[in-house]
Amino acid sequence: MQVRGVDPRDTTWEQDDATYRAYFWDKPALASDEYEVTGADVEEVLAWARAMAEETDSTYTLYVCVTDEGSPGLVRLSGTAGDPFA
């Protein structure tokens, strides 16, 4: 991990309400269940994803949804990197 100080004036926008995507990977079935989550902060979503993964005996990947030059995309926040079946 690398940490450096930053000037907070280097960004041009900020958004308080985030949309998250959670993927739960079921390795024996080679399948995943996907959910979109709104109306919660990242700590609430992480707690839910961890509990859901434990309850369903799966691994998870949590993303925040972003838009870059008009195209939707995902930024991984936590969990398994990429498709574990690939």
Results as ranks from 00 to 15, higher is better:
Gly82Lys: 08
Ala18Tyr: 09
Ala18Cys: 11
Gln15Met: 13
Pro84Glu: 08
Tyr63Trp: 05
Val45Asn: 05
Asp68Pro: 00
Glu14Ala: 13
Ala53Arg: 03
Pro8Thr: 14
Pro72Thr: 06
Pro28Met: 03
Pro28Ser: 05
Lys27Cys: 12
Gln2Glu: 14
Gly39Met: 07
Ala18Val: 01
Ala81Lys: 11
Val6Cys: 15
Arg4Ala: 11
Phe85Val: 04
Thr61Ile: 04
Arg21Thr: 06
Arg4Asn: 06
Thr59Met: 12
Ala51Cys: 01
Ala81Trp: 13
Leu62Gln: 02
Thr80Ile: 09
Glu36Ser: 03
Leu62Arg: 01
Met52Trp: 00
Glu44Ser: 13
Glu54Gln: 08
Ala22His: 00
Leu77Gly: 00
Tyr23Gln: 13
Ala53Lys: 02
Gln15Cys: 15
Glu14Pro: 02
Thr59Glu: 12
Thr61Pro: 01
Pro8Ala: 15
Thr56Asn: 14
Ala47Glu: 13
Arg4Lys: 11
Glu55Thr: 12
Asp7Lys: 09
Leu46Asn: 07
Val45Leu: 13
Thr61Gln: 01
Thr19His: 00
Val3Met: 15
Phe85Ser: 04
Ala86Cys: 12
Ala47Ile: 14
Pro28Tyr: 04
Glu14Cys: 09
Pro8Arg: 13
Glu43Gly: 09
Leu30Ser: 01
Gly73Asn: 05
Ala18Glu: 09
Asp16Gly: 10
Tyr20Asn: 08
Asp33Glu: 15
Glu44Lys: 14
Thr56Glu: 11
Ser78Thr: 02
Glu54Val: 06
Tyr20Asp: 07
Phe24Lys: 01
Glu44Leu: 14
Arg9Leu: 07
Arg4Val: 15
Ala81Glu: 12
Tyr23Trp: 10
Thr38Pro: 02
Ala86Gly: 11
Gly82Met: 10
Trp25Leu: 01
Phe85Pro: 00
Tyr23Cys: 10
Val45Tyr: 00
Val45Ala: 07
Gly39His: 05
Phe85Glu: 03
Trp48Asn: 06
Pro72Glu: 06
Arg50Ala: 05
Thr38Ser: 08
Glu14Val: 10
Leu30Arg: 00
Glu69Asp: 05
Gly73Thr: 04
Asp83Phe: 02
Ala53Gly: 04
Asp10Thr: 15
Arg76Lys: 01
Asp33Phe: 10
Trp25Phe: 06
Glu43Lys: 15
Thr11Asn: 13
Met1Phe: 15
Val37Ser: 04
